[in-house]
């Protein structure tokens, strides 16, 4: 179990994350930490025994002579920012723009795990879906067809049984390929139905103008339509983000000032 505080989130503003940056997201209990540990080995700051300030676990690994920085985001069921963990995860993906976004899913209950994967696909394209615990699933008579899944999602899929070390090399290979552009994921986004898609379609060009690519316009449109943020909120968000980038100091103010931050109590 790992836990985060608002003021710990200043690490999010740390623009000095070494690149290429790989972020791990996933539901709780999907073996995300096992994957993280398997990737980074002992080269990590662990999210130590809580009790003092905890930061996101960070680590590195080398593959094909590239040093990848890996960040383990908190385990969440969703990215709709209903809780602090979800906000941390969402804001990290939104603002730090990982070079490769690794979504860890549990083969034994893929359906619910895809909820998160599909949400993340709204924010970033550079996604790899990792279907973990295939050994556990096989024991229960559940088999996931990676090719079909990959075709349906439009993003690369790697099957792993991280605890047994199965699929880890393939995972690193895929991370490298997505990073280097050899594989270009093109997520097949959720269709929200005629009415909503029309509204999104109208908003996107305007948002593209306003934010000139600093926020994913489709995600911004969705969050405006669903009432999470107003356009002013988002402008404020980007402004504070830009300012704190310039200051390159602590981002505390950024998070305490988050406008319209409705999920957070």
């Amino acid at each position: 179990m790992k836990f985060y505080k608002v003021r710990d989130m200043d690490f999010l503003m740390d623009d000095n994350f070494p690149r290429p940056l790989v972020a791990l997201a996933g539901n709780p209990n999907t073996g995300k930490s096992t994957i993280f540990n398997a990737l980074t080995g002992l080269k990590q700051h662990t999210g130590n025994w809580p009790g003092k300030t905890v930061s996101l676990a960070r680590g590195t690994f080398y593959h094909r002579n590239v040093k990848f920085c890996v960040v383990d985001l908190p385990g969440t069921y969703s990215l709709l920012a209903n809780s602090l963990e979800e906000q941390v995860a969402r804001n990290f993906i939104l603002f730090n723009r990982p070079d490769v976004m690794l979504v860890i899913t549990d083969a034994t209950c893929l359906e619910r795990n895809l909820n998160l994967a599909l949400q993340i696909m709204e924010i970033t394209d550079r996604i790899i879906v990792c279907v973990n615990l295939i050994d556990e699933a096989a024991k229960k008579g559940i088999y996931v067809d990676g090719d079909v899944l990959s075709k349906e999602l439009g993003v690369p899929v790697v099957a792993t049984a991280a605890r047994r070390g199965i699929g880890l090399f393939e995972l690193k290979e895929m991370i490298f390929k997505v990073y280097s552009g050899k594989v270009k994921p093109s997520p097949r986004k959720v269709n929200y139905g005629e009415e909503l898609e029309k509204a999104i379609g109208e908003l996107v060009p305007r948002l593209e103008n306003t934010f000139s690519g600093r926020i994913n316009p489709r995600w911004a449109a969705l969050s405006i339509i669903s009432g999470d943020y107003s356009i002013e909120d988002l402008e404020e968000l980007v402004k504070i983000r830009d300012e704190s980038r310039e200051e390159s100091a602590y981002g505390y103010s950024f998070f305490s000032q988050l406008p319209g931050n409705r999920g957070l109590k």
Binding site: E111, I142, E152, V190
Partner: peptide, 28 residues
Amino acid sequence: VKDLIVEKIYEKAESITRKAVRYDRFRE
């Protein structure tokens, strides 16, 4: 709207799962 968004996401997740997951002698 929010309900609709989540419903649509799950609808898609369900349809993908139906195609990509095979249940063999399913037992828990």
